[in-house]
Design a protein around this nucleic acid. Structure first.
Lengths: 151, 151
DNA sequence: GCAATATTGACAAATTACTTGTCAATATTG
DNA sequence: CAATATTGACAAGTAATTTGTCAATATTGC
């Protein structure tokens, strides 16, 4: 029958790659006792951001309750520290501790290894073109689909 | 601090786009009473494949029990039909019915609408370059990470 | 053919990764 | 300062999927 369009294939590949990447990343994260949600929080704070729980949640488009639990656990494990929030006295800001920053740096380094394999033999120009295109897709998407609140 | 590499950004965007796309697709699928897993099965069979449950599962990298349940439901709803499997008498092959094929065609058409918005203003060359790059990534990935069985 | 081994479908329970609901405490704002 | 909103904590619910188990039946190696 008709060949699928390039557009369709791009979205198909995004779906497949996401799953494949998630599996690779999960294997690695598990070795450090982290879940994907933990990694996401660390990423939002790396290297020097300070954010409150509700703000991390809204940037990550997940419920604040979920991020609350994740942040509490990371705090307990010594990867995060809290500081007073000038904008809201009940909702402290969180930042990486030195240990947390080192942890995420290591995670990134390991991921970079995987990335280098994943991108082996792909010309830099193609990677840059892909980045530009996906970014445009992402912003198109946001422009039309980012008008929902919760809670 | 240091700017993230293009490689890293590409994978970041894949993660973000996957989630955004999943949300868009889910809204549409729900209207047809389907879940993402149903769509995946229909896609594997569209337009004229015939596959047994364990084979769909292995291609989709999910457990055969999960696909079994999904296929049973689609069969009950009249979207699939079974035929004898020459390679295994207990494990019939499944194919789309006419209704099932029409359903998936409609899903695809609706998705194409969304895709056209998502890709609006992106040059065809960039889309093609992106497709080529993602495909290369996907095959790199498969080449190294496809050696695990289950069950 | 026939025995040993493997595969399959069915079902149940467990797991993961969240969301939603609720509430009291405390903030912010008008 | 009173009305309203936000936050953190906790509980319960949900969706999608995995894992475990089993009996039935296939396939295979001899």
């Amino acid at each position: 029958m008709q060949a699928p369009s390039s557009q369709y294939e791009v979205t198909w590949l995004i779906r497949r790659l996401f799953r494949a990447m998630a599996q690779l990343a999960d294997n690695y994260l598990r070795a450090h006792g982290l879940a994907a949600a933990d990694r996401a929080v660390l990423e939002f704070l790396y290297p020097d951001e300070t954010l409150a729980v509700p703000e991390i949640a809204s940037r990550n488009q997940v419920s604040r309750q979920h991020i609350q639990v994740t942040v509490n656990a990371l705090l307990e494990d010594g990867f995060l520290q809290s500081r007073p929030n000038p904008r809201h006295k009940r909702s402290p800001l969180f930042a990486l501790t030195h240990v947390g920053r080192e942890l995420f740096r290591k995670i990134r380094a390991a991921e970079t290894e995987l990335l280098n394999q994943l991108f082996a033999d792909i010309p830099a120009d193609d990677i840059e073109c892909t980045r530009r295109t996906l970014q445009a897709m992402y912003f198109h998407n946001l422009a039309q689909g980012d008008t929902h609140e919760s809670d």
